[in-house]
């Protein structure tokens, strides 16, 4: 059976190294997680593309034709504005999928907890992996749409992987914390359901942080989504370079959350079997 690696790895870093220690298991679980959502449906994997495509279409219609908001008046290729929203929303979607599923992650895999010996920290990696794959497909669609709309190769999108790296690391940390606490407290999943719509409006998706009164702006940067979304939008659409100072700071906080999450998961994990 899968035993955790011996005492050579300090327990603090056990969740962090789960991906390398159980790589082939990770691949199988990731494939299963992605495929199981569409298995048995008539269109199958086509849905992976159809769902974001329908999003692009509806944003183009709403923000390109009906609503003329924040960024509509700036000089821009027609139908480029909706893609601004799409880019923010795909990053937001990644975070929300990871967070909302994380609260029930352990409970949903109850048999993995109390029927087999399983590296439970891997579940967080799988969840992040699934969400990241969808994000990748969305990004590819965004690149395609942007190329068509502006009739140029969107090189600027290359900044995305750079911004996403600390974002994913931070998300993993949050997944571990929420999944560990959520295993004990069902209330967390319900609380997150209540918080999701609130977060939609407290994240600068449909507006820019610049429009927020300066007094409240600092608060906005406590939202882990604000920095990557603002920076990506600035770099891709507004000719505004990424603040490398902020980037470094974001990496530091991401690593802190990641480590804290791993520690928290490791600490709470022995009790999972008693509560799921």
């Amino acid at each position: 059976m899968l035993a955790d690696a011996g005492p050579r790895i300090p327990s603090l870093f056990v969740p962090a190294t789960a991906l390398w220690r159980h790589w082939s298991l990770f691949r199988r679980l990731l494939a299963r997680d992605v495929l199981s959502a569409f298995r048995g449906s008539v269109l199958g994997l086509a849905w992976v593309v159809l769902i974001p495509l329908s999003f692009v279409a509806i944003y183009s219609f709403v923000f390109g034709v009906i609503v003329k908001t924040t960024w509509a008046n700036e000089a821009r290729a027609p139908f480029e504005t909706p893609l601004i929203y799409f880019m923010s929303l795909m990053m937001f979607g990644f975070f929300m999928e990871a967070i909302t599923r994380s609260a029930n992650l352990i409970r949903d895999h109850a048999t993995y907890v109390n029927k087999i010996v399983f590296p439970l920290d891997l579940l967080g990696w799988v969840l992040a992996g699934t969400a990241l794959m969808k994000l990748g497909i969305n990004a590819a669609l965004l690149a395609g749409a942007l190329a068509i709309v502006t009739a140029a190769i969107p090189w600027k999108l290359l900044v995305l992987p750079l911004l996403l790296a600390p974002f994913v690391v931070l998300t993993l940390g949050v997944i571990w914390i929420f999944s560990a606490v959520g295993a004990y407290l069902r209330d967390l999943a319900l609380g997150l359901q209540a918080a999701a719509p609130v977060l939609t409006f407290l994240t600068p998706i449909f507006y820019s942080v610049d429009q927020v009164p300066p007094a409240a702006r600092g608060m906005f940067y406590l939202n882990p989504l604000t920095f990557p979304i603002e920076s990506a939008r600035g770099a891709v659409f507004m000719e505004r370079p990424v603040s490398w100072e902020g980037y470094g700071l974001y990496w530091l906080s991401a690593l802190a959350v990641f480590t804290l999450g791993g520690w928290c998961f490791q600490r709470l994990r022995p009790g999972f079997a008693d509560v799921v």
């Binding site: 059976m1 899968l2 082939s24 298991l25 199988r28 679980l29 299963r32 495929l35 199981s36 298995r39 048995g40 048999t111 993995y112 109390n114 029927k115 087999i116 010996v117 399983f118």
Partner: peptide
């Protein structure tokens, strides 16, 4: 441990696919 039969089995996947995942879960 055979504490429960078919841990990790997913109803929508074929027997062969499930063997691979169940086997991976067994190490």
């Amino acid at each position: 441990a055979l504490l429960q039969l078919g841990v990790g089995f997913h109803p929508d996947f074929s027997g062969r696919e499930n063997v691979f995942l169940a086997g991976a879960l067994l190490g």
